[in-house]
Every structure is written in structure tokens, then in C-alpha cells.
Design a protein around this nucleic acid. Structure first.
Lengths: 270, 270
DNA sequence: CTCAGTCGGTACGGTAACGCACATTAGGTA
DNA sequence: TACCTAATGTGCGTTACCGTACCGACTGAG
């Protein structure tokens, strides 16, 4: 069995943020598992038996509509955990978690996660408690920004955002995924993704090849994506780094004089 | 000063779910405030000084883009709390919270909220801790479903969803809001809302009149809205009612054989 | 009452994305 | 090798929504 720690595959950010004492306490309980493309971690009504800490894989939370159409709600990789409903108290979530990039993850039995989550560190809650909640706040921002992006931005921009977000969670610059799959994540037509990808390829930013996308020019993608990517990334980094109370982000996109600025709700200017 | 408890204005669900002992401990710390339309509770980088428990008001969390365009991320009324970033650990959130329906709320100083949140009940976390986290999970579902709705559903359906969600948080069947404002929440053109509202009015479901919308036929709206409303409502009720581990919802919309059902990611059928 | 400003209704050309149909090509398999 | 399927590319009519413009009507202030 491989050990990701020795193979330089990168590790899970939440686990990495634990103190040595805490990690040593937890590590014998973790089980390394290989997750393959398409594997379903949970369905809408499933009570989770495990929480997953991805290392090299990426898992998508996605909602599948009655019509069969779908949309990705959030993606989780080495930055996070699958199974927030365990410690948030709901037990289940009305969406599906599916592996969309094969790789490794640690898994932890649900009851053990809860035990660690509720373990008091001194008179307060423990480190894992704080880490998980802070990650979940970042997840909220990711979901919210996806919503905004769905509303206002072009497929081209959304594809850039999606590629960049994926890249941030992968060890290389290569994505193993078909355009059809991406279209299911973005909730658009497959042809729309093809069209957008063609533009990026013509601009020399990516190379598409039968279920494999190689990113050639990351800064180029960053220049083409919408603000949504940056908002989520900045917030994510802020929440990851700040141990207790986060410092303000250097990127402050919202102090435009838009809708509902101060007193009046109706002072909108473009 | 009015006391909402005596005026039958309804109360805040989170506070209501506390035991008598816990509520009595908290209640002297709560301050009743009147919030007026357009008031901004927090801006993206604001450290919150108070958490707000709406009673009769509705507060929207909305993101305002660089261009000035906006989109509502979630709405919070008597069902919830404004200020999740306080106990989730991030301190701030990259969006704006603004009062979009005037009314009353209790507010609680941030440090007192945190104190209560972290207060252990026996060997475990306290009731408020659990209530707040469970509410936050519902909030996640609300945000996620808004994202899905933005992607896939018509403005007509979204307007129905929005009206119904608002209605659930209001004491009467009357909304005091302009169509322009609604368009800012939904992130669409004002004319789009006018058009959709006209259809609903012609169908006899609502009555629009200069910044005032009266809902005449709630079931009619429910029949016209998309699944998104029901998903959020069902999940919300489930999370509110279940004290520890939630029972399964009676409404299970996701067991269609859509995308990424079991093994294969690419077995999509409409 | 008068007037100004807000709010809502209507129209029209433009366009991003859709639904569908079909051609092409790469890669694995017999 | 030949074949078959999955993956990608392309075209075309349709449509929901956009941007803009303009107008009528209601409301509240003076």
C-alpha cells in the first residue's frame, strides 16, 4: 500500500493543519483508500459511514434534477473534507458526492470523526472542530460564488474558473476528464464546453485531447476567468491560513458602489 | 418598546428551540432592534459586532459584482441568524447582508454569541452550538439550490420560489418590495420580473401594486415553482425539527437515474 | 392642486445558450 | 488489420433573456 506522505503526492490541508499531537492521535484511525472515477461517495439520503479527506482525488458535490440535468455545487479536493453533514448535524445532504478525478483519500469512520470533532481542547473546542468549521465557511463561499457565476458569467469564463479550481487541487497540470463530464458539472450543453475549450485551445492556453486537458498557460486562464475564481481562492486561502481570527484579504472586490450600498436599496449604478 | 413575544409577531426559530433554562440565560443578553429597509448589516470585510436573530424582518445575503450587478445568495428571516461567520471562525464573509423587508430582530453581541456557542453542555457542546450548526447546514442547502436554480430554471419559476421563500418568513401574505428590488435579488432585468409578475397576476395568483405584492393563491405559486423551493423547504424543516439525527425527508427528489448514478459518470439519460 | 419622481408596463433588436442532428477522429479491441 | 465506440467538432433554427428606450400611472411632497 502506498503512503502518500512518502510519495510526495501532497496531503490533505485539514489534516496537515493539526498539531503533531492531534495528528498522531488521529492518524492510526485514518484509512487510505483509492477512489476511482465515477464512484459515488453518498447519495441524497445516505447516512454517511465515513468522512473522506481527499489527497489526490477530486470529489464533486452535485445536484441532479428531476429532469436528469445536473449542476455542480462545489468541488472538494485536498483542501477539504467530504461529509460536512456529519458534524453540522444534519446527517445527510440533498445532493450527490461523486469522484470526478481518481486518486487517493483518507477516510475516517463517522463516529470517530464526531468524537474528535466534539473533543474539547482544554475548556474550548478542539483544533479539528475549528478547522472543520472554518473549512465549511470556505465551502459556503465556494457554493455562493458558483451561484453568482451561474447567474452572470459566460460559459467561457466559467470554464476557466472550473479549470483553475480543479488545477488547484491536482498534482499536475493535466485533467483527466471529458468535455461531456465538464458540461454536466457546469450544467451547460456539451457543445458549449467544446466551443469554449476550442477558444482556449486556439489561444494556446490549453491542449484538449480525448478526455485529457493539459493546461499550458495558467496565467492566461486567470486573465480570462471572472472575479468568482479569485474571490473563492482568496477567501479559501484566508480561512486556511488564519489560525484564529482571519486578517482581511488583500483582494477586496466588493467595495464598488453597487446596489444597496448604504441606506438606499435602489441606488443602482452600472 | 414592543415585545414581539406578546404581540404574536412570531419569534425566532433558533431561539425558540432552546430549552427554557438556556433561553432564560440568553434572553437578558438579547436586544430588540428595529431594522429598516435597505439597512446594511455587514459589508464584505466587516468584522461583525453583533449577530442578528430576525423575528419579522428578512435579510438578504447578496453578492455585488465589480460591474455593479448583484445576486442574492440566501435569505434569512425568523428561521435563522445573520452572522454565521462569527461562529464558523472566519470573522467575515465576502458578501453583503442587507435588510430587504423591514421588521424586528434580536441582536446579540458577537463575543457573547461566541461564548454561548462554545459553552459546553455536560461533556458535549451545548444546544445553541448544535442549533446554529444545523441551521448553517440548511443555509448551505439554500445557497446550493439557488445556484442550481440560477442555472436551470426560468425566471418565472424563480420568481415563484422567491415569493414563496419570502412568504415563509413573513407574518402576512403581503410583501413590501418593488419589482426592481426583486430583479436585483434574482440577478435579472427588472423587465424580466415585470413580465413574470404579469403572468402570475393574470393567473390570479398575486396582486402587484407599486411596491406591494399580495399573494392570493399560495398553492398556485407552489404548483408553478421549480423543485428547488421544495428541496430547500423540506430540508429546512427536517433540520429544524430533528433534535439529533434527522429522519429522512418524505420528499426525496433525487433518486432519478440521472447523471453519475452509480459506477459510471457518463451514463446520462434525460 | 400641481409637480416631480418612483414604479411598472411595453416594445424591439441583439445574443448567448439551447436542442437537435450529424460528421469526424482517436483509441481500444477483436 | 479492420472495426466499433467514445469523444470531439460543426451547423442551424429556436428561445429566453438582455440592453435600451420610452411611456403611462400612481404617490407623496409642496
Amino acid at each position: 500500500m502506498i503512503d502518500p506522505h512518502n510519495h510526495n503526492l501532497g496531503r490533505n490541508h485539514i489534516l496537515d493543519s493539526l498539531s503533531a499531537t492531534e495528528y498522531n492521535h488521529l492518524s492510526p484511525l485514518l484509512e487510505l483508500v483509492a477512489l476511482s472515477l465515477g464512484e459515488v461517495i453518498y447519495e441524497p439520503v445516505d447516512e454517511l459511514r465515513y468522512a473522506y479527506f481527499p489527497i489526490t482525488c477530486i470529489v464533486s458535490m452535485l445536484y441532479v434534477m428531476e429532469s436528469g440535468a445536473s449542476a455542480e455545487i462545489a468541488m472538494v479536493g485536498k483542501d477539504g473534507i467530504i461529509g460536512v453533514s456529519l458534524f453540522m448535524g444534519g446527517g445527510t445532504m440533498p445532493n450527490r458526492a461523486v469522484v470526478r478525478s481518481a486518486g487517493y483519500a483518507y477516510r475516517l469512520r463517522a463516529e470517530l470523526l464526531l468524537q474528535e470533532f466534539n473533543r474539547a481542547g482544554g475548556c474550548r473546542n478542539g483544533a479539528l472542530h475549528e478547522l472543520l468549521l472554518r473549512y465549511t465557511q470556505g465551502l459556503i463561499t465556494q457554493i455562493a460564488q458558483t451561484s453568482v457565476c451561474n447567474r452572470h458569467h459566460f460559459v467561457d469564463q466559467q470554464l476557466c474558473r472550473w479549470l483553475l479550481s480543479s488545477l488547484d487541487r491536482l498534482p499536475s497540470n493535466e485533467l483527466i476528464i471529458t468535455q461531456e463530464l465538464i458540461s454536466n458539472m457546469l450544467g451547460v450543453r456539451r457543445e458549449g464546453v467544446t466551443e469554449a475549450a476550442r477558444k482556449l485551445q486556439q489561444a494556446g492556453l490549453i491542449d484538449c485531447h480525448r478526455g485529457r486537458i493539459t493546461v499550458l498557460d495558467r496565467p492566461g486562464l486567470e486573465a480570462r476567468t471572472c472575479e468568482c475564481y479569485h474571490v473563492v481562492k482568496t477567501e479559501h486561502d484566508r480561512l486556511r491560513l488564519s489560525p484564529r481570527h482571519a486578517q482581511l484579504p488583500s483582494y477586496i472586490p466588493l467595495y464598488k458602489d453597487g446596489l444597496v450600498r448604504s441606506e438606499s436599496l435602489s441606488n443602482r449604478q452600472a
